[in-house]
Design a protein around this nucleic acid. Structure first.
Lengths: 187, 187
DNA sequence: GGCATTTTATTGCATTCACAAATACCTGCT
DNA sequence: AGCAGGTATTTGTGAATGCAATAAAATGCC
């Protein structure tokens, strides 16, 4: 009894699939290791702080945060617990809707993010972007962007935050400038 | 005191970076959910079985397996423990070197892999490849392949295993045909 | 107004996973 | 032979993570 199969992968498809898995794994591990050892921050924790810093009032609902951070809702609750214990974020109730909790970036959290930003940025360049030509970079953004579940508008807006910063500057300033932007939106 | 920063990300770079993170997350979650619910197999478990099926004698050293599966050595030990408890793989000592343990695919393991193969293949197509043009597929293979830490030769060889299968065929046959290949090599 | 449904966040529980230490073994040097 | 150093694997332990169930609150329908 022959099981009807989807068309098996050809060489190109196989290469693309494996490349995605392996490259992601490789890059993330390195990034996480550096961030952890140099700044005592996990990658999900960094992402939470970064998203908060970019949000209006530096606060975001738990549910929004869960979508942006790559984490389940329960995972996020626990991560925010941890960050709150460390004083990097605090929780605030929402007047309009008592169910929602805002995670709010504290000054300590911003400071921590400012310290971690250069390490993270360097890692992203060193382990990822430096290996890509401009064309490849663009191709990846195009090809995977569609798969990522966020509209191109969001990506573009998000990009601006880091783009405003000049090449030689103070990390804290970049983040403070960026902190006014608002473009985080659930898909 | 101005911290010297690497050049911040421009819009294209930001898009590529976020696209990698988000698309990977999205695709993997879906794939894993389907494989888990339809076949009671985690993605790492599938990968282990698949790599074993492609290896000469359907056996591989733990260390080789750990490199190919996206898992730490200790993680692999435990995964193989679990698969061995379920009878899908067995362990075998190596005559030449008493330190190495081979994980060997059992007939039950092969059967399980045969059952899971169509589900996995469908998922990879549906959630990943179907969204890519041929050019995009090629571009990803090129761009990320370099980052993935395996030589292009390995990728090409690995691709053949699935490429030999025709579009409309029996899953078991594909896997049996593929089982003779040998191209697994640590970086 | 009151009850069913849906949404938001948290918690219980079990699993997965990695790092570091331990173990067993091999290799080369003297 | 014997030991120093390196390699392959496993185990101890703690942290991270997800799913399902729960709690609390909004929303809609009667």
């Amino acid at each position: 009894m022959a099981t009807q199969l989807p068309r098996p992968l050809d060489e190109r498809e196989m290469s693309a699939w494996h490349a995605l898995i392996r490259s992601h794994n490789r890059v993330m591990r390195r990034l996480e290791a550096e961030l952890e050892s140099e700044q005592r921050l996990s990658l999900p924790a960094y992402e939470v702080l970064a998203h908060l810093s970019e949000a209006p009032d530096q606060r975001l609902r738990m549910s929004e945060l869960a979508v942006h951070a790559v984490l389940s809702p329960s995972g996020l609750t626990r991560l925010v617990d941890k960050l709150a214990r460390e004083g990097l974020v605090s929780r605030a109730r929402c007047d309009a809707d008592a169910r929602v909790i805002y995670a709010v970036l504290t000054p300590e959290g911003l400071a921590r993010l400012e310290a971690a930003y250069p390490v993270h940025l360097r890692g992203v360049r060193e382990h990822f972007l430096d290996h890509l030509s401009e064309q490849q970079c663009e191709a990846i953004a195009d090809a995977l962007g569609e798969l990522s579940g966020v509209g191109p508008a969001d990506c573009a807006a998000a990009a601006e935050v880091e783009a405003v910063a000049a090449a030689d500057c103070d990390a804290a300033e970049v983040l403070r400038d960026a902190a006014g932007a608002q473009f985080v939106e659930a898909p």
